[in-house]
Design a binder for these strands. Structure first.
Lengths: 371, 371
DNA sequence: CTGAAAGCGCTAACAG
DNA sequence: CTGTTAGCGCTTTCAG
């Protein structure tokens, strides 16, 4: 497939090009793609009809449709999406619904959204951010409910699952506003995609690294999460446990410590664990905000540091990795997340298929050397 | 920055929009970007002049230029690149110059190029592949020399460094054909970018993982490369050695075994090493083609398998990882490589800046769990 | 040095 | 059901 204009061109001398065999239409020239005009001529219909068939709009006879499709086939017509969008004057207004926290990971996400706005500006795409209280499903549902098709074309929603949000999404889709579940949450219908990593696999990845880094040292592993109510944390823990329990029986995973995002509480519960547990060999920080837990852990375990694995790359975790306070980071690329959400939303709007391989978000493993 | 059309809109009721304060031009409407027409009116000149200024074409008086620039400033004009390209009828013809081997990594690369052609077709980008003998600098230089601006707009070159290629690149740039160094090779000028990973860091990453996986087991490490003449392999080895020598003194890195891509030779030299070396604890396969070395290694070390680290994801290495024959894979995403090269080439052609953060190729660590 | 007008490939009224 | 026509935002002759 990848060998048209040069594949042959180079074998014959570089300078001769005898393309214009079919100089009938399209002013010929090398690799000129056929246009709607060519289709119209070939099919013996008008531009308008071609357009109708192309966008399967109603009001065309079956056999006319067939004629046009044949022409498409025959000429190998490829639509010029860009010209179409120009003519439509179409622009894409997307909205990211994100939790309202001071989270460094979230800050990074927002920075990437700004960046994406730069990149996609040329393609008439604009993305906005709206903050929500992630713990208040009613508020989220209300925010979603207030959206209207003449404001937004699509929404990327980062919120935990809840019946309210689920319903609100369904209503958005009815209104014609596309949705994707962003990083958190679940797919609610086949009009809804998930952009993010498989958290079970992410936990398993952390588990495997922990196991391998502690190949010969028996002991217990501390699990620190903001809350275990979040589905993501739960799945990560499940994945983690699975690996440790099966392949590293000399290690014992302790019950999860929940910080509730409270610094003092975090310090207290970790200290407690430290004094009651004799041999903590590893610490797995499940949540995306690793800073406070990390600070407490490195303070408490001044000597005989356990293996520490955390999630997400932030200025803080990055520094911790560089200084070897953290042993590994499991991350997902925020830039990729944002662009992927935008591309998916745009493809939906255009009723196009997406290229799955480009949208798959990788579970990345970061160590000091590949930062 | 990320809070324009909704940030305020939502605080006042969702449905009211009192945008049309300036209903003079542009038929107003929400978030309508000013066009060249608006600029022309504002600056009191014609469209043609606006265009001349926008593309800094010659033949415009200084003060006229100033007037237009003021208008741009005042209206916050953003160029519609897409419309410009449509009017220009511009398309982008790129060429990937790749080695001629049966390499699985390379096959993947080519598949990604085909994929990229799908993605970028809408944006009038087409990429082709041309194969070269990577060991013959003259042939490469000749191939490059035969290219002409009316065939190609840019070339991504995957070839080892050599004076010939270096010169050929310089001549391409003189002709107006852009180049990027792809995966291998070096940047030859500031008209040339490198798309690929830092191989020293990649080697260091392999080294760190090897060290951590062998924390308590002393022994030697086998290094297998296709050839040590390739700069990439050399750099990887250097990075690898650095980590092992400094942080894991109980491990000894053996001299590199060179396979020259020959299966029989590979089998022979690995067997030799195996019988002369008593305690091989790890194997690091440096080159991108891991298949044959892997097969031989897994056969030779039937029992007491060493830790094995290899490069690149191919159907074969992926299967080896799943079956735990390989312990970790250091990879770079071929899809990302290809798209990045294309984006860079296109940005050059458009005289645009690229967004560095999107083009940075990650050194990925793959284990069974995050495949 | 500057402007008028035609057109890129496609869409969208509005007539038939 | 189908065709005509006037654009979308920008570029590009060709005259002035």
């Amino acid at each position: 497939m990848a060998s048209s204009f040069l594949g042959t061109c180079l074998k014959s001398v570089a300078f001769d090009r005898n393309f214009n065999e079919k100089k009938q239409m399209n002013t010929a020239g090398p690799q000129m793609r056929p246009t709607t005009k060519d289709l119209a001529i070939e099919a013996g219909v008008s531009l308008a009809t071609v357009d109708r068939v192309l966008n399967d709009r109603p009001g065309v006879r079956q056999d006319t449709i067939a004629k046009v499709n044949q022409a498409i086939q025959k000429l190998g017509f490829i639509r010029n999406v860009v010209a179409a969008n120009l003519a439509r004057g179409k622009s894409y207004r997307f909205l990211f619904l994100l939790p309202r926290t001071g989270d460094a990971f979230l800050a990074g996400l927002i920075a990437r959204i700004d960046e994406a706005n730069q990149i996609f500006a040329a393609e008439m795409v604009h993305a906005d951010v709206m903050h929500i209280h992630e713990s208040d499903p009613h508020q989220i549902a209300h925010a979603l409910g207030s959206l209207d098709l003449d404001q937004v074309d699509g929404v990327a929603i980062m919120a935990p699952e809840s019946p309210q949000v689920r319903d609100a999404k369904a209503r958005l889709i009815e209104k014609g506003i596309d949705t994707v579940s962003f990083i958190a949450g679940q797919i609610t219908s086949d009009h809804d995609d998930f952009v993010g990593i498989d958290n079970h696999a992410a936990g398993a990845t952390a588990g495997r690294l922990m196991g391998r880094f502690l190949e010969r040292s028996a002991g217990t592993i501390l699990i620190i999460a903001e809350t275990m109510l979040a589905r993501d944390s739960l799945e990560r823990r499940l994945g983690f446990d699975e690996i440790i329990n099966i392949d590293y029986p000399h290690l014992t995973v302790l019950p999860s410590l929940e910080t509730y995002g409270d610094a003092e509480r975090t310090a207290r519960i970790i200290r407690n664990s430290f004094s009651s547990q004799h041999s903590i060999a590893g610490v797995y920080i499940v949540s995306s905000e690793a800073r406070v837990p990390l600070e407490v852990v490195t303070e408490v375990f001044a000597k005989d540091k356990p293996v520490i694995i955390a999630h997400e790359r932030t200025p803080f975790t990055e520094a911790a990795l560089r200084s070897h306070q953290v042993d590994a980071l499991i991350t997902q690329d925020p830039g990729h997340l944002v662009r992927s959400a935008i591309r998916i939303l745009r493809a939906r709007r255009d009723r196009r298929e997406i290229l799955a391989s480009q949208e798959k978000i990788r579970i990345e493993v970061l160590i000091t050397e590949n930062l």
